[in-house]
Amino acid sequence: MRRAAIALLLAAAALPAAAQDKLPPAPYAYTQLEDPAQEARAKALMETLRCLQCQGQSIADSDAPIAGDMRSQVRLKIKAGEDPEAIRAWLVQSYGDYVSYAPRLTDATWPLFAAPLVLLGLAIVLLRRRFGGKGA
């Protein structure tokens, strides 16, 4: 089922295909940076940026034109020496946290980061209650 849905997400990305632009992709949409270290940095960042039209995918896994354009911008900025996190911040400034798959710690997201701690605490309590006091 889950595959089906992912497929359909993709399909949705492909739907406007009937009204697709005829322009070639942006310079770095389907082209890697010459410097492998820079490309690795760009790739790592692109895998954590959300495609705006396909919604369920990162821009690194999408054929949507806007994802291609965003990849190109990311690569150009990396090439110009910008810090990946600064590029993320630029996009977050435009689109909000939605665009980034890496949630930041904010007023709206602290429970997300508290949850693992709570779970870990619960796990420790459970294990201690199970074994505590009796020793091995």
């Binding site: 310079p27 806007i66 354009d69 689109y95």
Partner: peptide, 11 residues
């Protein structure tokens, strides 16, 4: 290259 969209948050 859709650059202005990324600048102003248009999707």
């Amino acid at each position: 290259v859709s650059k202005i969209q990324f600048d102003i948050g248009s999707s």
